[in-house]
Amino acid sequence: MKKFTTLFLLIVLYTFFQCKKEVVVKEKFINTDTIFTKKESQKKEIKQVQKRWDSLNKENVNNFFTAYGKQHLENKVIIKTKFGNIKIRLYDDVPIHRANFIFLTKIKYFNTTEIYRVAKNFVIQGGNSDETYTQNQRRLYGNYTLDPEFKKHRTHKYGALAATREWENNPYKKSNPFEFYIVHSRSGAHHLNNEHTVFGEVIAGFDTMDKISKVPVGRDEWPTEDIRMTIEIID
């Protein structure tokens, strides 16, 4: 009887420890699987953030366009209007402004904008409109500005492409990235040198500029009829 009792206790103890061991193994496996899945999820989230190419905001402008410019080397665009086309070459030695213009062209920002100012014998100005998409794009990136990139040899000659800017409360002469103008005066507009960044020039389509310069305008130099435009990258 005593032997039977001892044997019974040994069997009970063995069974108990085997069950406990099995529970521990199962719990360890379940926890490991859960942790692995969570890490994998975190990795996917990190990769998604890293793949975002349009993370531009007003705090990272220079870094964003420095990196963007190295990956997007295009420097020629065409402005299409109902009066004809204007071909532009962007300057490689004004890298932030060039990259910005290529970026906006690729996201089709300009395709809902218009030429909204025609100052005869002076400039033709565009890059804004009341379209919802236009305004949403400006808000999306925080209405950022660009640091000036003045170059002695990049002047306001006939056909120069330059960035607009605010004149009030802008001591560093930062550019508006969304709006631009083209000098239409044959003698240039050299009083604007070192006031606005020149970042490109017209290489074809001077006759189109002449046609645009003749449209009727109001006192504010706004064309009486909208001049819609699209901009595309060309080789």
Rank of each mutant, 00 (worst) to 15 (best):
M1S: 13
K2S: 08
T6F: 04
L7Y: 14
L10E: 09
Y14D: 15
K20S: 12
K21S: 10
V24I: 03
F29A: 14
F29M: 10
I30T: 11
T32G: 09
I35K: 14
I35A: 10
K38C: 05
Q48L: 07
R52F: 10
K58R: 11
V61A: 01
F64Q: 01
A67N: 14
K70L: 12
L73S: 15
K80I: 05
K80N: 10
I88C: 09
Y91L: 13
D93T: 07
F101D: 02
F101C: 02
L104C: 02
K106P: 02
F110W: 12
N111Q: 06
T112M: 08
R117V: 02
V123P: 05
I124M: 08
Y133S: 12
L146G: 00
E149S: 03
T155H: 08
T155M: 07
H156W: 03
K157H: 13
K157S: 10
L161A: 13
A162M: 06
A163K: 04
N170T: 06
P177M: 01
E179P: 01
Y181P: 06
V183F: 05
G188R: 06
H196Y: 11
T197Q: 07
V198H: 05
V202S: 09
I203Y: 08
A204Q: 15
G205L: 01
K211C: 01
I212K: 01
S213R: 02
V215S: 02
P216K: 12
E232V: 02
